[in-house]
Amino acid sequence: MVNPNQIVAVVDDDESVCRAIKRLLHSEGIRAETFSSGDEFLNTLAAIPSYRPACVILDVQMPGINGLEVQRQLAKTGVPIIMITAYDDLAVRQAALAAGAAAYLRKPFNSAILFKAVEMAIDGSSPAPPATP
């Protein structure tokens, strides 16, 4: 169960995706903050050392720093990461999961899969849900 005081960070360059995920999480009582780029998210982490989301939902393909690079930079923090992408690539999926992603979801995904992935990522449950078809 997700603690209502926990925050999930959503990092995606598509504003409509950020809004949709934030609404979905809010409907389940989960607080979310959105970031339009990997750079913006990493800058926030650097500027506010006390900021630590319970989980990060991270788009793979973004301008500037892509999702895999953000994941690499977060590796030492232990923050669980759920990768999302509209352009599934087996090598990228394998790299993300090998680097410790809690889940890898292909857009569009349904809300039940998203909620389960977030819950499992935050609770540290395993195994991660499979990539969506």
Score class of each variant (00 low, 15 high):
77 T>W: 03
59 D>R: 14
77 T>G: 03
104 Y>M: 04
64 G>T: 00
64 G>V: 01
21 I>A: 00
46 A>N: 05
78 G>C: 05
93 R>D: 02
96 A>S: 15
95 A>M: 14
69 E>D: 11
55 C>S: 05
89 D>L: 11
88 D>R: 14
26 H>W: 14
25 L>W: 06
75 A>P: 07
52 R>W: 06
58 L>W: 04
33 E>Y: 14
49 P>G: 03
87 Y>Q: 14
35 F>P: 04
79 V>F: 05
71 Q>K: 01
54 A>S: 12
74 L>E: 02
100 G>P: 06
70 V>C: 05
56 V>W: 08
29 G>C: 12
43 N>T: 15
19 R>G: 01
23 R>V: 07
32 A>R: 11
47 A>N: 12
24 L>D: 06
93 R>E: 13
15 E>G: 09
96 A>D: 03
36 S>G: 11
65 I>Y: 02
40 E>N: 07
68 L>A: 01
64 G>I: 06
31 R>Y: 03
95 A>C: 13
51 Y>F: 14
101 A>V: 12
42 L>N: 04
43 N>K: 15
101 A>N: 10
45 L>E: 00
104 Y>S: 04
56 V>T: 13
63 P>M: 00
32 A>I: 07
35 F>Q: 10
96 A>W: 15
22 K>V: 11
52 R>D: 02
83 M>T: 08
18 C>H: 02
72 R>S: 11
65 I>A: 03
41 F>C: 01
77 T>L: 09
45 L>C: 03
55 C>I: 08
16 S>P: 00
84 I>A: 02
18 C>T: 01
80 P>M: 07
105 L>I: 05
29 G>F: 14
83 M>A: 01
80 P>G: 08
15 E>I: 15
88 D>P: 12
17 V>P: 03
33 E>I: 10
36 S>F: 09
88 D>I: 10
48 I>C: 03
70 V>M: 11
40 E>Y: 01
67 G>C: 06
96 A>M: 10
68 L>C: 00
63 P>S: 09
93 R>M: 12
102 A>L: 04
24 L>Y: 08
47 A>E: 15
102 A>T: 11
101 A>I: 04
99 A>Q: 10
96 A>N: 08
34 T>M: 06
40 E>F: 04
79 V>M: 15
93 R>Q: 12
54 A>F: 07
58 L>S: 04
71 Q>E: 01
71 Q>G: 02
70 V>R: 13
33 E>D: 13
47 A>M: 06
43 N>H: 11
95 A>W: 08
49 P>A: 12
49 P>Q: 10
34 T>G: 10
79 V>P: 09
50 S>R: 12
95 A>T: 15
44 T>S: 13
55 C>L: 03
44 T>P: 02
45 L>K: 01
39 D>H: 12
59 D>M: 08
92 V>M: 08
52 R>K: 15
76 K>Q: 14
50 S>I: 07
94 Q>R: 15
26 H>E: 15
89 D>C: 11
17 V>A: 00
73 Q>V: 05
46 A>S: 09
74 L>F: 08
41 F>G: 02
18 C>G: 02
53 P>R: 12
32 A>N: 02
88 D>L: 14
80 P>K: 13
